[in-house]
Each structure stands twice: as structure tokens, then as C-alpha cells.
Amino acid sequence: MENIYQPLETEVLDVITETPTIKTLVLKPPRPIPFRAGQFMQLTVFGVGEAPFTPSSSPFHPETMEITILKAGRVTAAVHQLKPGDRIGLRGPFGKGYPIEKFAGKEILVVGGGVGLAPLRALLYALFHEAEKYQRISIKYGARNPAELSFRRQYAAWQKIPNVDFEYTVDRAEGDYRGKIGLVTNLLDNLDLNLNNAYAVSCGPEVMLKFVTLKLLSIGFKPEQIYLSMNRNMSCGMGICGRCNIGPYYLCKDGPDMNFADIQKYPDVFG
């Protein structure tokens, strides 16, 4: 009988510093871990504990997995201490992941904030894999300041993919930054898309998710066209431990990417 709580020992191949507060672990599990974009893993740092993270790498390359992590608490601080050759534990994947099959032929609006671009990057890789299947993929991304723009070295390549447009902004400009300034919701003004044939997907801090959702609704998106990455302190990943519920849903099992129509009536959606 396989123990669903058993962490799979996994080697850290590389640690990439993305921003002053965000690092990406490149992991080599002893066996490939197939996952859908949006599904998450429980990652154990030896002697510190376990916490949930969504891979930021392509679901088409399950033999190495990348997980991009903001230093925010106890486990993530320990993650930031890891070096190539260290070993961590993985279990999962858990959750449903993005309903990518529904996105075929649609305009997909992807809205990210801060480290929220990490789980979205797995989705983007999955979408880019067959970019021609989608009407268009529009990415809007915001970070606090230029130094906190994640995956910045990839933007130019993404912008060159047919059907893809990518825009980013920062809350505060610094140094020689010459790009857009302002909240990510500003990038949603004057959107040129066919609302009847679109889905929006968003991941970021709670406050950003809230205002992105309100903005999307005000533009004319229907709740059922909006998918939000809802993240909580999942402890088991299997819909038992009870830490991640919104209404009748356990985000670990029914999400973490939820259709807004399903969760909008529950008062603790945005905390």
C-alpha cells in the first residue's frame, strides 16, 4: 500500500536566483512526476517541514521539475538556503490544475502578480506547446519594482511567439527602468479582446486577485470565465486536513485554480 504522505527524496540540481526575494529550484526526482499545469506539490525541506508549491516548469518535461519560491516564511526561508546537491522531499501532484482543454480556440488572458507568475509559467509552457490551438494568449504581469520582475530573461522570447502578447508593469520604477509603471489592473484597461470567446486566468497576492477579479467583472467578464489560483496553507493535499476550504470546496483537491462562479458567494474568498 502506497503511503500518500511519503515524501519522495529528490535532488536539487540547481538554484536560480530570479529576484532578490525569489528563487527557482531545479529538481531531479528519482522518477518523472507527471503533472498538469496548476497542480501543486508538497515540498519538504529536511528538518524544517512541508509546504505546498506549484511547479513553474513545463508539464511536458516531468523528468526535471522547477519550483519557484518567494521567501515568505519558515519553510521558504529554508528553501532559500538550499544549494545544488541538497536533497528535498516531494509528494504529489495534488489538485486539479487548469482546465486547459476548455481553452482551445479561446482568447486566454493570463494575469500575474509577483511570484504568482510562477504557477502561471507552467500554464504558459503548456499553452505555448500548441500556441496555434488558441485564438490568442495575452499575458499581463505586474511586480512591485523592476528587480522583482520574475523570469525577466524570458520575456523577449515569449513576445516573439505568434498569438502571444506579453506586457508588464511595476508599481514603482527604480534605476534605469523605462517600462510601464502602475498596477497590473491598469494593463486591463482598453483590452482588445472578444469577451464572448475568452477566459481569464489569474494568480498573485490576495489583494491583487481581488482587484483583478473586480476589474475583469467590470470589463464584462462573466464569473464563469475567470479562473483564480486560490492558495491556502494546505497541510495534507487530499481534502482531509481542513485548512484550505472555501465554502464546500477544498482548494487542495478541487483547486487550487477555481472558477470564480463556484466560489464568489463565499465571504472568505479573498480573506
Binding site: E206, C241, G271
Partner: peptide, 27 residues
């Protein structure tokens, strides 16, 4: 060396819905 512990918790506890970074979903 050490142990991984599974322990009763309660949704009434203040830190139950607290996440890293300090946001508490049911404060």
C-alpha cells in the same frame, strides 16, 4: 534526525488559516 508529526488542529484557532507572509484568511 527528527519526526514528522500529525496532530489534531481546530479551525477555531487563530493561526489555522494563517499563511506564510502573514495573511490570515479567517482572522
Amino acid at each position: 534526525s527528527g519526526q514528522r508529526i500529525k496532530q489534531w488542529d481546530a479551525c477555531l484557532f487563530k493561526d489555522y488559516a494563517l499563511v506564510a507572509g502573514g495573511h490570515n484568511f479567517r482572522e
